[in-house]
Simulated scan of single mutants.
Amino acid sequence: MVMTMVPLLAALSILQMVSGSVLEAFEQVLLTNPALLILVPVQIGTAGNLGSIMCSRLSTQLHLGTFELALDNPEVRSNSGAVLGLGITVFSLVGIAAWAIGRALGGTLSLVEVLTISLVSGTLLAVFVIVVSLVAVSTSYRLGYNPDDTTIPVVTNVCDITGVLILFAVISVVL
């Protein structure tokens, strides 16, 4: 396990530095809009949580022999639907909370703007989490690694940087 995880974690650490660089590039936008500043850690954390849930469920299915990477697999569809539904629910609530806190801190963005940014970026990220989780579990198993060990660090780190990129792409379109 150590031989597998050390190189993987080293590569993922470099990926995290890239994510920090992206955040730094948008520093001024975040500082002028407190609601958006609030969305960043929540977006990243929630994506990691959704990815962990999805990977755990898929790994369990793999160990039980019920995992098959196919769209007609009812287990994959139900887990994907649950993660997507959870993501939409959480990102809706996060958008409202970020708007309220941002308003209290002197922000000027409307509820519709913040909610749109949170919900659209969160939904896109939830779909990405589902796809990356499916690929990570499948790839890990095919390469002979235990998906319980490898998939959650991979998915959470990949979703961190992707979450930041998706969030700022949506911000650029909405604002």
Results as ranks from 00 to 15, higher is better:
61 Q>N: 06
62 L>I: 00
63 H>F: 03
63 H>Y: 09
64 L>G: 02
64 L>H: 11
65 G>Q: 11
66 T>N: 11
66 T>D: 10
67 F>R: 12
67 F>M: 12
67 F>P: 07
69 L>I: 13
70 A>L: 02
70 A>T: 12
73 N>T: 14
73 N>L: 13
74 P>Y: 03
76 V>R: 01
77 R>V: 10
78 S>I: 08
78 S>F: 04
79 N>R: 13
79 N>F: 11
80 S>Q: 05
81 G>S: 03
82 A>H: 06
82 A>L: 14
82 A>N: 07
82 A>R: 09
82 A>E: 07
83 V>K: 01
83 V>Y: 00
83 V>H: 01
85 G>N: 10
86 L>M: 12
86 L>Q: 09
88 I>P: 02
89 T>L: 15
89 T>H: 01
89 T>G: 12
89 T>Y: 11
90 V>D: 01
90 V>E: 00
91 F>D: 03
92 S>T: 14
92 S>Q: 03
93 L>V: 14
94 V>D: 12
97 A>R: 14
97 A>S: 15
97 A>G: 13
97 A>F: 15
98 A>G: 06
99 W>R: 07
100 A>E: 12
100 A>H: 04
101 I>T: 05
101 I>A: 11
102 G>P: 04
103 R>K: 14
103 R>M: 11
104 A>C: 02
105 L>D: 08
105 L>V: 04
105 L>W: 12
105 L>G: 00
106 G>Q: 11
106 G>R: 12
107 G>C: 08
109 L>T: 01
110 S>R: 05
113 E>W: 00
114 V>P: 13
115 L>V: 09
116 T>F: 05
117 I>E: 07
117 I>D: 02
118 S>A: 15
118 S>G: 07
118 S>T: 06
119 L>R: 07
120 V>W: 11
121 S>P: 08
